[in-house]
Amino acid sequence: MSRKLSGLGAWVLQRATAIYIGLFGVALLGVMLVSPPTDYAQWRNWFADPLVGIATLVFIVSILLHAWVGIRDVLIDYIKPLWLRVSLLALLALGLLTWGLWASQSLILVRLV
């Protein structure tokens, strides 16, 4: 991560993703309140819609970036030993990547199977 991206870049990214996560959350809540999918077939159909699929993919990426910046901030604040900080950051990156790939995989499978 470049020096530029760790200061202003990270700060802007955190705010931009926060707005998207907020909007997506409200939209999701709206759908669940107005016409919630009642069975698995309906869930699949809903996620198979290209618009929902793309919006959800952007949501997944937003969560990953937002969580990375936020948790990295906490680690920079409190974790002083370099080896421990780097280990925790690596663990975080691995965890986020795993979750992100798993979530994206579900989205893709919905369209393929």
Binding site: R3, K4, S6, G7, L8, A10, W11, I76, D77
Partner: peptide
């Protein structure tokens, strides 16, 4: 001078 993660951006 204020760029980077520390000097300015530790402010939460």
């Amino acid at each position: 001078e204020l760029e980077g993660p520390y000097k300015l951006f530790r402010c939460h």
